[in-house]
Each structure stands twice: as C-alpha cells, then as structure tokens.
Write a protein that binds this DNA or RNA. Structure first.
Lengths: 114, 114
DNA sequence: CTTCATACCTAGCTACCCTATGCCTCGCAA
DNA sequence: TTGCGAGGCATAGGGTAGCTAGGTATGAAG
C-alpha cells in the first residue's frame, strides 16, 4: 500500500473507529490494523499527529487516563466530530464511486452484503 | 471533494483512461470530469505535471500531433504502463476494501452490477 | 538485566495536488 | 477588427499531510 494512497482519508478512518467508542492512540493503531487484516498498518508517526490535528480541529476531545501504571490519552468524538464523520463518509462514498466509475466495468466491485 | 482525497490515486485514474486508447491531456481532463459526473473536475495544473511524471516514469509515451492548427501531446500506455495499471487497480481495490471495512456495515456499498 | 510490547511525542523530509500565471491558436460575436 | 471564450500546453511556488527516525517511559517476560 503506497503511502500517498491514505492522504485525505485518514481522518475519516480514525473518526469512524472512535465513533464506536472512546479509544486511545495505540488502540486505534491496532484496531485499524486488525479491522483491515494488515492492509493498513500505520506507524505511530502517522497516528499521533493526526489525532492532535483532529483535536485541534475540534472533532475529537481527549483526556488522560492511567491504566496499570501506563498513561493513555483517550479520545472521543465531539458533537462537531459526529457531524463531520457523517459528512466524510459521504465524501468517501462519492470519491470511491467516482474512481470506480473511471476504472470501468473491468474490475469486480466488492461483494454486496445486502 | 477535498483536494487531498485524490493523492496517490491520480496516476491510476489517468492510466485507466489512457488504457482505453491514446488521449491528450486536455481530453483526459474532460473525460475524467464527464466519467465522474463532475465529481472529479481537475485543474490543468494537476493533470499536466502528472502526465509528465508518468512519462518520466516510463508508464506513458507521448508524441506531438497537430489538429486544426492546434498542437496536442498525445499519450499512450507503454508496455510497462500496462502492467502498472493492473497493479494499481489491485492496490485501489485493496485500499477501498480496507476503508470500507473500517467504515463498517453502516454504509451502503455501491450497487453491484453483477 | 535485557528485551519486547505498550504508550506517547515531534522535527524534518518528501510527495504531490493546486493556485496562479503565462503562452499560443481558433471561432465567433460585437 | 477587436475582443473573448474554448481549446491546448507548461511550470514555479505553496500548502498539506503522511512517514522516517529519533526520543521518553512503564511493565512483563526471558
């Protein structure tokens, strides 16, 4: 997976996971890796700055916690973040549909679970 | 459509269109716009440098033509480009599937034409 | 006691898309 | 005949954002 591919989509991924419940950075990293079967194995230098950016943007809020002597910064969606994640979902769908449209009928779209 | 969303995927889009037959830059621009119903309306400053990059990388080859007093640079896929576009298609599918997997069952995948 | 996993941070690099601008021709309208 | 829009190409410069590589610290396992 080329690095550039992720650009502009990472925020959505992080927000979407946090949407399922508060998470700390390291857990987000792990969860992205597992939910994508190692397709997205993002380094810490990607995750942490992104979280800080999202917090600065008011989409996430964090608080420090202590678990077994280890400090964790736990993030959760703000109300503004909740709106934004839905917007970004739609943006992704539009983008993916556009790309798929250009690629044409040669490719198999992924299976429809419906 | 945020600008960053495209990063790392433009090459595939351009190669995929040229795969359908030789095209010049301006035509590629128009075709991307039309095939995506205006979802991807890319400026010239995006298209032309990308084409130069792809040619330098040996994926495209160009020749100048003259049509109605207007010079056009027409691009076509090299054999190396043909291999690369297939590889990039697979990369895109893997990436899109990964993102969709993270987004979870909340979103409707696009309709399956099959 | 060393190593590994957990857990956080950031300066600097790099890739690449976009803005803004410039150049040229043709066709058409004022 | 002078403008102007569309067609057609090009590039310097800027901004964004992910990654590399380095740092700090704890707890568990060897």
């Amino acid at each position: 997976m080329k690095a550039e591919a992720l650009k502009g989509h990472l925020d959505l991924l992080l927000l979407a996971v946090v949407e399922d419940g508060p998470r700390h950075g390291y857990a987000l990293m792990e969860e992205l890796r597992i939910r994508t079967a190692d397709a997205l194995d993002l380094p810490e230098g990607t995750i942490y700055p992104a979280l800080h950016r999202l917090e600065r943007a008011g989409l996430l809020a964090s608080k420090w916690t202590e678990v077994g002597g280890r400090r964790r910064r736990v993030y959760e969606l703000t109300s503004h973040g909740k709106g934004t994640v839905e917007e970004k979902r739609r943006d992704w769908q539009a983008f993916a549909l556009a790309v798929q449209g250009v690629l044409g009928p040669k490719v198999e779209p992924w299976p429809n679970p419906a």
